[in-house]
Design a binder for these strands. Structure first.
Length: 210
DNA sequence: ACATTAAGTGATT
DNA sequence: AATCACTTAATGT
């Protein structure tokens, strides 16, 4: 855990804080599509992402979901930041997108470290700001972009996260993430393929126009 | 060979 | 862009 921690956070946190993280944090590794946090769960810990990606989803009253944003190495969940002061329930769902390793920090430490470490404060504010920006971007794409642009953006995001121009995903999964129907996704992907932006295979999509 | 799941398509709203 | 109804293609057993 020490090596991973050093690699991902060594440049942000001072020695003393890194040591504290190491002694109090719980190292976890998990495969893709694992639920880390469910809507309604009490937030008990704060994840520091070391490796891999996590997608953050919102759910409507019918149980349909919508992708809010991805978390990557060096990121943390903004939900835990807003929940840390009281015993609040999570309003989002967090699911691993790929193989992940992360360190869980007990929520009690948050306040303590906020007072104690300047780098921690900076990290929390910075994270908060970044997540907020990403949310605004997502809102923009929903409000102002056509579905074909949204799909293209989503494919690029996924490609970037996995470091691979071939995205492993079914049309149905994309439809869930973007809160639309599979038929619509299939049609738009077909159009994008004819336009030479992507190549379609069963269960995967190759992206040319990164 | 058969069942299951993913993807393609026309028609309608 | 969503939904329905149906077809076709790919994959697992």
């Amino acid at each position: 855990m020490q090596k991973e921690l050093q690699e991902a956070y060594g440049f942000i946190f001072e020695e003393e804080l890194l040591n504290e993280i190491e002694s109090v944090g719980i190292f976890k590794e998990m495969g893709p599509n694992q639920k880390i946090m469910e809507i309604g769960d009490y937030v008990t810990g704060m994840p520091l992402l070391i490796h891999g990606a996590i997608k953050i989803l919102r759910e409507d009253n019918k149980g349909d979901e919508l992708l809010l944003y991805f978390l990557e190495r060096g990121d943390t969940c903004a939900m835990t930041l807003t929940c840390c002061m009281g015993q609040k329930k999570s309003e989002i769902r967090a699911v691993t997108e790929s193989d992940c390793s992360l360190i869980m920090i007990p929520i009690g430490k948050m306040e303590e470290w906020t007072a104690k470490y300047k780098t921690w404060r900076a990290f929390v504010f910075e994270s908060y700001h970044t997540r907020f920006s990403e949310m605004l971007e997502t809102i923009d794409t929903i409000a102002f972009m056509n579905m074909d642009e949204r799909i293209m953006r989503h494919l690029r995001d996924k490609a970037k996260i996995n470091g691979n121009d071939v995205v492993q995903s079914t049309h149905q999964e994309i439809a869930y993430d973007l809160h639309t129907s599979r038929v619509v996704v299939s049609r738009i992907l077909k159009k994008l393929e004819i336009d030479g932006m992507i190549a379609l295979q069963r269960n995967s999509i190759k992206i040319f126009d990164l």
